[in-house]
């Protein structure tokens, strides 16, 4: 039993765990956070750092920026022996699609009420991304949209922007 569970565990681990650093992406990430840290530090410097007895608004962000720069450098040094290739694949396009759909959802939410964007979002994720059969997708979409309406608007009295009002 335990053995079996452990096997499942390992299998799952392999599936879900990202390559733990060591790759070119880690180096890129370190460089990006290094740049952000430098930029933040420079901005913080401009906010008036003050003195230790009268710390200004910039002091703390400056300290944090320094920590960020140092840890970025440490990560960059560690990632220096990069051997793996870039793990971004064609599959990353789906992630982009997913992320853009969320932004679009948020954009439309207050403009046209939550019902239609919700239905569209669910259809997109179910059919195009999830490759679910059409009927299943439609049922889930209608059911979930109605459930969200009943839960948030009717039961909890949350004022969601909506088209259908009672």
């Amino acid at each position: 039993m335990d053995q079996e569970q452990e096997e499942v565990q390992e299998e799952v681990q392999e599936q879900v765990t990202a390559p733990a650093g060591r790759s070119r992406t880690t180096a890129v990430a370190a460089v990006v956070s290094l740049a952000v840290g430098l930029l933040a530090g420079w901005t913080a410097w401009g906010m008036r750092v003050g003195t230790l007895s009268e710390p200004g608004p910039g002091l703390w962000p400056l300290v944090v920026s320094v920590v960020m720069v140092l840890s970025s450098v440490a990560l960059l040094v560690a990632a220096g022996h990069a051997t793996e290739s870039d793990p971004f694949t064609r599959g990353s396009a789906v992630v982009l699609l997913g992320a853009v759909s969320l932004l679009a959802y948020a954009w439309a939410f207050e403009r046209i009420g939550f019902e239609i964007p919700t239905a569209l979002l669910l259809m997109l994720w179910l059919t195009v991304i999830g490759k679910e059969p059409l009927l299943t997708s439609l049922l889930v979409t209608v059911g979930a949209t109605a459930a969200a309406y009943l839960l948030f608007v009717v039961a909890l009295g949350v004022s969601l922007p909506r088209l259908i009002a009672f």
Binding site: L120, M123, P161
Partner: peptide
């Protein structure tokens, strides 16, 4: 699938044209 999505989108536009949005932060 695309046709369905287009249909929904069409409905969205139509519904938006006839009714106002209720609730939310900008009622």
């Amino acid at each position: 699938h695309r046709r369905i999505v287009a249909l929904l989108a069409g409905t969205a536009v139509a519904l938006t044209a006839c009714g106002g949005v209720q609730g939310g932060s900008a009622a």
